[in-house]
Each structure stands twice: as structure tokens, then as C-alpha cells.
């Protein structure tokens, strides 16, 4: 086994070289590079953790602002609903008043018109009596030649017209 046979001849150089190379590896790689790689990894872990916390915070904030918005929205909706109801009531009242005024006006006009019609029909009826009496006197005079007074004719016409 060369490891044993050569031990006296080679142990010094083996020792020298392993100490040299391992020492260099320890100082260059172990002490130089590893801590920087570790710090990169730590920085990444910190960054990820920080980002997660920030995201969680942002989510909570978003939830809160959404809640606030919802409350405001509900309040606005309620206000709008109340305003609408008030406006509706007001409009209903106003239109009622307008309708009432218009009704009254119409009624007055209808009453006036009815009165006018009654007047006209009364006047027309009076005229008819006069015309009928004249016609009756004329007819009697033509047929019999007997003179009929105006008042007689009028009485006869009134008796026929009014039963």
C-alpha cells in the first residue's frame, strides 16, 4: 500500500500541500466568498419577507379603504334615496295643488258655461213662444179670418208647449 510505504518519503510534501491548498481554500473561499454568498441569500430572504409583509399590509389597507368606501357609498345611497323621496313627495304635493287649482278653474268655467247655456235656452224658449204665437195668429187669421189677440195666442202656445 503506497500510502504506508511512502509515508516517510512523502508526508512532508503531503502536509505542506494540503495545508497550503486547504488554507488558501479556507481563506479565499470559506472566509472570502461564503459570507458574501450567505449575505446575498440573507438579503434575498429579507427582501422576500419584507415584500410579503408589505403585500400583507397593502392588502389590509385596501380592505380598510374598501370598507370605508362601502360605508361612504352606503351613506350616499341613503342620502340620495331620502332626497329622492323628498323630491317625490314635494312633486306630488305640487302637482296635487296644480290639479286642484286646475279643477277649480275648470269647474268655474263649466258652471259659467252651463249658466250661459241655460240662459241661452231660456232665451231661445221665449223667442220660440213669440214666434209660435205669431205663427198661430197668422194661421188662424188665414184659415178662419177670426182675429186672435196676441195674448190669447200666447196663452194657447204656452199651453201647448208647456203641457
Amino acid at each position: 500500500m503506497p500510502q504506508i510505504e511512502q509515508v516517510t518519503a512523502t508526508f512532508a510534501s503531503q502536509l505542506f500541500w494540503v495545508l497550503l491548498t486547504f488554507g488558501l481554500a479556507f481563506f479565499i473561499i470559506g472566509r472570502g466568498m461564503v459570507p458574501r454568498i450567505q449575505s446575498t441569500m440573507d438579503a434575498r430572504d429579507d427582501q422576500v419577507a419584507g415584500d410579503l409583509t408589505a403585500a400583507e399590509k397593502a392588502r389590509a389597507e385596501a380592505d380598510a379603504s374598501e370598507e370605508a368606501w362601502r360605508i361612504k357609498e352606503n351613506a350616499a345611497r341613503e342620502t340620495a334615496r331620502r332626497k329622492l323621496a323628498a323630491a317625490q313627495a314635494e312633486a306630488a304635493k305640487a302637482s296635487e295643488a296644480t290639479l286642484a287649482a286646475a279643477d277649480a278653474q275648470h269647474a268655474a268655467r263649466v258652471a259659467a258655461a252651463e249658466a250661459q247655456i241655460a240662459e241661452a235656452s231660456r232665451a231661445a224658449a221665449g223667442e220660440i213662444e213669440t214666434v209660435a204665437a205669431d205663427a198661430a195668429r197668422d194661421i188662424v187669421a188665414r184659415l178662419s179670418g177670426a182675429p186672435v189677440s196676441e195674448s190669447e195666442a200666447q196663452g194657447a202656445v204656452r199651453a201647448v208647449l208647456h203641457g
Binding site: L20, A25, I29
Partner: peptide, 26 residues
């Protein structure tokens, strides 16, 4: 004791250089 550059030393240096090159990627 003679300190010699041996095939063993060469592979130690190779391991060192290889390890260093590997670590450079990191």
C-alpha cells in the same frame, strides 16, 4: 524532508482551482 510538487499536490491545486471556479458562479 523534501517538499516536492507531486501528482497529489497537483490534484490539491486542481481541487482548489475547481472549487474556486465553481464558487465564482455564486
Amino acid at each position: 524532508q523534501t517538499i516536492a510538487f507531486t501528482n497529489s499536490a497537483m490534484f490539491m491545486v486542481a481541487a482548489l482551482v475547481g472549487l474556486w471556479a465553481f464558487m465564482l458562479m455564486g
